[in-house]
Design a protein around this nucleic acid. Structure first.
Lengths: 193, 193
DNA sequence: ATAAATTTAAACCGACCGGTCTAATTCACC
DNA sequence: GGTGAATTAGACCGGTCGGTTTAAATTTAT
């Protein structure tokens, strides 16, 4: 049950730092300061900065997937309403964070996609896992006739979520949620039957 | 007319490096090596790394805007065909680069949006300039009845281009252009009248 | 109670970072 | 052809980077 510090808290702090400031702009010392641990403890838990980042990706995406599943499982409402509600909730979450962070997976894909195979492959795998979850609810919505049936549900999920990342980027650079709301309105206007 | 080295070439080399590897992962020495100049020359032309990056943003986006305008001005074809043709061309360009770079403006927006106000504001201004250009052709297409007229053309241009950036991110992390093609097909299927 | 194992703590390391400095070179102009 | 300004050249600087090390403190097991 542990000593003074615990791994999960450090990883959580790291995900906040990486999301807001990126990978290369965050040093080990920033991480140490942000949760008041000495360097020895850090290297006791993690092999390297890269290993740490891999665990940040893992924890963040597992939490995200669980969160998305919980939002999509409210069987009371229709599939389309659940998907739209999920994005609405995510928009609220980003607003609560001051529009300054965005999506860790997307951000790291951009920053490390050109150079760090290990981390960007890891991020990509987690992205695809999330797409699967969203895709299955889109399929449901198509079966109920709520969403145009012409497109492959999995492709549509990819389209939605990478478009949402584009909007998150606009949000981050402007520190303003309007782009998320515009995206929501436009996207769901376009895909509904 | 110059001595041995010239500024524009250094800026061009920098834009390649920043696009592929990001801002913080590229050091001054990487830039020097990539165009074989000594440090003294670099600091003769540029005040600092940040000043250099600002000039990279400026040159890259001015070139991009001119390029986009040239692609959109082929009055032989319809406005919609011109817009779609522009994205098709951009997809080809990214393929020619090995799908490893993406968009400098978008990439820097993600990496620096949370921390560097000067550079991210600069990037944002250039993004909006480009949106204006695309927006005006969308308006044209709407007047000709080629694109659904319900949406504001400027908002639609923002939607298109930030969605394209999302697809570029998928491309970069997968080193694969299929995501760009899927995006093209889906987007233009959805917005056409 | 004590020994073994683990975690905490921070000083320390070489490498590299962005940036400065001084000298040699090259150019434009008289 | 000589002169002053701009460019080229790279050694050099303090600071910070990711990472190592050694010892003290703490927890667990006996």
């Amino acid at each position: 049950m542990g000593y003074k510090h615990n791994k999960e808290d450090i990883v959580l702090a790291g995900s906040q730092l990486f999301r807001k400031q990126g990978y290369h702009n965050v040093g080990i010392n920033d991480i140490l300061k942000s949760c008041n641990i000495p360097k020895g403890s850090f290297y006791n838990f993690f092999e390297s900065k890269e290993d740490f980042a891999a665990q940040v990706i893992e924890q963040y995406s597992e939490n995200s997937i669980a969160y998305v599943k919980s939002l999509l499982e409210k069987k009371a409402s229709s599939p389309l309403a659940r998907i739209k509600g999920m994005y609405k909730q995510m928009i609220q979450d980003n607003i609560a964070e001051g529009c300054s962070q965005g999506c860790l997976i997307g951000n790291l894909s951009v920053e490390l996609g050109g150079t760090n195979d290990r981390l960007s492959t890891h991020a990509n795998e987690k992205f695809m896992e999330l797409i699967k979850v969203i895709g299955s609810v889109i399929e449901e919505a198509q079966e109920k006739g709520e969403i145009k049936a012409e497109q492959d549900p999995h492709e549509l999920a990819e389209y939605l979520h990478s478009g949402f990342f584009g909007a998150l980027t606009r949000m981050k650079v402007n520190r303003n949620p309007v782009y998320l709301n515009k995206w929501l309105k436009l996207t769901f206007g376009l895909i509904k039957s």
